[in-house]
């Protein structure tokens, strides 16, 4: 699925920065509402990095939970899914977390 092309973007982003240096670890943020499955990414990572300086690197994935802030009552709360519904009943909710999809750091030798 889309995890493969996203993992390819990850490889491009890292190699664009680290060049030929051997990468031993990659830290990512994959929010729980991002639409990307960490397990699928792990699987794709092995395929995509084979034969590159990232081969064998450890993939550390933070999975921030979904967060919402109600524009009605101001409550900050956990969003288990993409349905923006505040416990107060309002659907006027800003999704403030959980959609992250980014590489945050890499470990190089």
């Amino acid at each position: 699925m889309h995890e493969l092309s996203i993992t390819q973007s990850l490889l491009d982003a890292v190699v664009g920065r680290t060049g030929e240096r051997q990468v031993t670890g990659v830290r990512l943020k994959v929010g729980r509402l991002s639409g990307v499955l960490p397990d699928a990414m792990r699987f794709c990572f092995e395929l995509v990095t084979d034969g590159t300086p990232l081969a064998g690197a450890e993939l550390l994935i933070d999975e921030p939970e979904g967060r919402g802030r109600c524009r009605g009552c101001g409550l900050d709360f956990t969003l288990p899914d993409l349905i923006p519904l505040c416990p107060c009943g309002s659907a006027d909710v800003e999704i403030t977390g959980g959609r992250e999809l980014a590489v945050t750091s890499v470990e190089v030798v």
């Binding site: 996203i6 982003a13 920065r17 980014a102 890499v106 470990e107 190089v108 030798v109």
Partner: peptide
């Protein structure tokens, strides 16, 4: 080992 910070969104 060296850690390089690299805030980059994957869909950028």
């Amino acid at each position: 080992h060296e850690t390089i910070a690299l805030e980059e969104r994957l869909l950028a």
